[in-house]
């Protein structure tokens, strides 16, 4: 019973890796194109926007909060870039998008920490508000981006595609911040036990607030990477992408209850989700199946989180007498 539990826990804690291997074998059996190196590079490039978004989401989830507005934030900032900032050089465009998205994160974080409203409600409201503004500004037209921006998609740094560079940079900074700075460890403390964090004199509100700003910032970067890839945004742009980001983080071991997980797992979760979509694409699956598969993955992710928590609780219960001979 107990060793069985430990085994299940080990599997659950490494669930994304196990799933990943299973998928590789499955898709690999069906199509020999799937296991090609070039295809994996494609998967990572395609995964970059969601992964960057999910890294930002990880900060918010670690504090025990949630941000549903990141997809809408991507849509609004991209729309403003396409409508009002068409002529500016791309680095300024990137900075503008990041600044706007961070400001949106600050509004979310401010309302959550100052007014004490549940983040689920606050960010659900901002989701609709931001989408509404973006559709109003764009008249729900599809907006095109100029060549200098779409050219970025084909650009390389030392032979590495730009999307992967952005992905790697965001990941490295996020990892350093979470694991090597006081702020990062305090994020875990706040998520682990907010009351104890307050008693320890940690600036709980400021930490939660900053995590929302970081989530916003990542939405800006992820959004920019994705517009270089697709070159145009319509009313459906970024729709429900927040759920993919949350699923990526939770699949990677980030707890919805806060305090547990890491960006390493998150990145892997994002790549896993994209691998599934890529594999379905390569085996010519019916497009109507995609959302069903994504839904199944999200369900698995949440179920795994619950199961993990329950089993950890069970394992931490002490046995009183030796189990031998019974």
């Amino acid at each position: 019973m107990k060793t069985g539990n430990r085994l299940v826990l080990l599997l659950l804690q490494n669930a994304p890796y196990v799933l990943f291997v299973v998928l590789l074998i499955l898709f690999g059996l069906v199509s020999d194109r799937f296991l090609a190196v070039a295809n994996f590079r494609n998967i990572v490039i395609q995964a970059a926007p969601i992964a960057i978004l999910a890294i930002g989401m990880t900060f918010v989830l670690l504090t025990g909060q949630i941000d549903l507005s990141v997809g809408a934030s991507m849509y609004l900032t991209a729309s403003i870039l396409a409508i009002y900032l068409t002529g500016i050089p791309w680095p300024l465009g990137l900075i503008a998008v990041m600044a706007m998205a961070a400001a949106i994160g600050a509004v979310n974080g401010g309302v959550v920490t100052r007014l004490g409203v549940a983040s689920f409600i606050v960010t659900l409201a901002t989701l609709f508000i931001l989408r509404g503004i973006a559709m109003w500004l764009s008249n729900t037209r599809t907006l095109m981006f100029p060549d200098p921006i779409t050219d970025l998609n084909r650009a390389h740094v030392l032979g590495v595609p730009s999307a992967i560079v952005a992905f790697a940079a965001v990941f490295a900074v996020a990892w350093l911040v979470l694991h090597q700075t006081p702020f990062g460890r305090q994020v875990y403390a706040v998520g682990g036990d907010p009351e104890a964090a307050r008693k320890a004199g940690l600036p709980v509100r400021r930490i939660v607030f900053l995590c929302f700003v970081i989530a916003g910032l990542c939405a800006g970067i992820g959004g920019f990477v994705s517009i270089t890839q697709i070159g145009a945004v319509g009313p459906k742009y970024g729709d429900q992408i927040e759920f993919s980001a949350i699923a990526a983080a939770v699949l990677g071991g980030v707890s919805l209850f806060g305090g547990r997980g890491s960006v390493v797992g998150t990145v892997f979760g994002a790549i896993l989700i994209k691998t599934v979509q890529n594999g379905l694409n390569i085996i010519n699956a019916d497009p109507y199946i995609y959302p069903l598969v994504t839904a199944a993955i999200i369900f698995i992710a949440v179920a795994i989180d619950g199961l993990r928590t329950r089993i950890i609780e069970k394992l931490e219960r002490r046995t009183i007498r030796p189990l031998t001979g019974e």
Partner: peptide
Amino acid sequence: LNLFPNLTIEE
């Protein structure tokens, strides 16, 4: 106690 079980002793 005011400790964070998800962090290490030193943290």
